[in-house]
């Protein structure tokens, strides 16, 4: 998809630049854009590494598995088809906890493991069952306790208080997660009626 979007953005810019006569600005922007992107990566680099380093301490201490036990009772209700399947449920819990802690590198392998466990009991192998759809919907809603990347980016742009958007992020994430879960629940029932 990005193969089309990226090229199209550049072609639109070039045509638009010629039409509006801003050719000088356009040519300059190619140099400044490429330079700016490297500056951005370098300015994010230190704090990104520092933070993943710190979260590794939490991970090795077993924070993910400790927290995932707390979420297990809530999550079991969302995946009724796998209530008794402890392997699937524990992979789901670990994935949700890793996402919550912002451990993207750990969350994805856990999530894939959860999908593979769920696929074992799935009747139509090329079609998602309700629990699998629910699991992916939860993963597409970003629920992160400390959105570090955002704080680092805001700091870099000279925010007075890079964390001041934190409460707003939590409120919006939680409400949109609830909306996602509710819509998935409604649509899965409607799907059954059609069948």
């Amino acid at each position: 998809m990005l193969n089309y979007i990226w090229g199209a953005l550049m072609i639109i810019s070039i045509i638009c630049g010629f039409v509006t006569g801003r050719t000088k600005e356009l040519a300059d922007s190619i140099f400044s854009g490429a330079q700016e992107s490297v500056e951005l990566v370098i300015s994010l680099f230190g704090m990104m590494c520092f933070w993943t380093g710190f979260m590794k301490i939490a991970e090795l201490g077993g924070l993910t598995s400790a927290l995932s036990k707390i979420f297990s009772p809530i999550l079991q209700r969302l995946f009724p088809e796998y209530k008794s399947n402890s392997k699937a449920i524990s992979a789901i819990c670990m994935n949700v906890t890793a996402n919550l802690l912002g451990l993207g590198n750990a969350a994805t392998p856990m999530g894939i493991m959860a999908m593979k466990e769920m696929q074992k009991k799935n009747i139509k192998k090329d079609t998602a069952n309700n629990s699998m759809a629910m699991f992916v919907v939860i993963n597409t809603a970003s629920i992160q306790l400390i959105p570090t990347f955002m704080a680092i980016l805001r700091q870099k742009h000279g925010s007075r208080e890079p964390f001041d958007v934190l409460p707003a992020i939590w409120i919006v994430s939680i409400i949109s997660l609830i909306i996602g879960i509710t819509v998935a629940k409604i649509l899965e029932k409607r799907g059954k009626k059609i069948e």
Partner: peptide
């Protein structure tokens, strides 16, 4: 970022 920067500069 380069393509976004071009998008801005071109108007």
């Amino acid at each position: 970022i380069t393509s976004v920067s071009m998008l801005k500069a071109s108007g």
